[in-house]
Design a protein around this nucleic acid. Structure first.
Lengths: 157, 157
DNA sequence: TGCATATAATACGATATCGTACTAAATGGA
DNA sequence: TCCATTTAGTACGATATCGTATTATATGCA
């Protein structure tokens, strides 16, 4: 694998980073004050994969430290969008369940974004969007699966 | 534009968000303690578009509040990777210039990531990577250009 | 069974990021 | 020219995120 191709991968992630910044700022501007994309993402993930997940499963899914997730869950629970229940399979653990209010808010949040997406899609129709998503998703799934790999040389040394 | 397509755009940004999380965690784990992707991104951007940019230009490029950028620049300057000089064209303003150490660190940071990218590229060869990047870049450029748009209904109301 | 180790979640402190308010300089119209 | 308005950058406070340490429970092996 020539180094040139590796640098191309690097460019891909650079582009992804910028797009994430742009889309997050766009989305967050439409959410109620104090509600962040990280909060919404909890709800959206639970709708997509089903609720009853443990905090650790969520932290792993988002590749976020579990202490960060702990904090986020507390805020989302305070809004009444999720419920934390004991995990019957493990007394150390918990389960995160969506409330009706949580599902409603998630749907409303998506609705509120549609006009913005409409503006984007209207001014910049992208063909084969599902194919683009699938390619990104495949990369994501591979990285997800390969995450448990061993140490590599780093600048930390 | 049917709503179904808009939701597909939503999925695109959702996928991008997850990929950003994954890649950022991966990259940051290889940087020296206290050095974040946001710091590296300053250096990388200056190399790519040329240094001498003003802080505001950088804040706009990253779609980040200028106060956030102010803080980041101070940290990067403290590391000796950039120099802040007065902007001869505007006494309110400044210019950000790379130092040799800044360029070196940027190169080294990319080098340190290559093994990881190699692992990715080796296990998951992606054909037409430049084409994928170009499609993302086109979306990004359009969003960038369309950013000055007017207000839309939001959940804030 | 008993105990060393591993794991889930949280408490706590550090800091990156963000929003509001402020200062200094630039701009533009009367 | 003068002054109202706009703009570039920063100070300051709030909070989201992150790393380390702690507690409670689970796991696995002698």
């Amino acid at each position: 694998m020539p180094e040139r191709d590796l640098r191309t991968y690097f460019e891909l992630f650079n582009e992804i980073g910028i797009l994430e910044q742009l889309s997050r700022a766009l989305f967050e501007a439409r959410l109620p004050p104090g509600v962040l994309v990280s909060h919404f993402s909890i709800l959206n993930h639970l709708v997509r994969v089903g609720d009853g997940r443990t905090p650790l499963e969520l932290a792993t899914a988002f590749q976020v430290p579990k202490t960060t997730l702990s904090h986020t869950l507390a805020l989302v629970e305070k809004r009444g969008w999720i419920e934390m229940r004991p995990n019957p399979a493990d007394k150390r653990s918990k389960q995160v369940w969506l409330t009706d209010a949580g599902r409603s808010f998630r749907d409303a949040a998506i609705e509120s974004l549609l006009p913005e997406l409409d503006r984007l899609a209207g001014g910049f129709p992208e063909r084969d969007l599902p194919e683009l998503i699938e390619r990104l998703s495949a990369i994501r799934r591979y990285m997800d699966a390969a995450r448990d790999g061993e140490a590599q040389p780093t600048l930390r040394n």
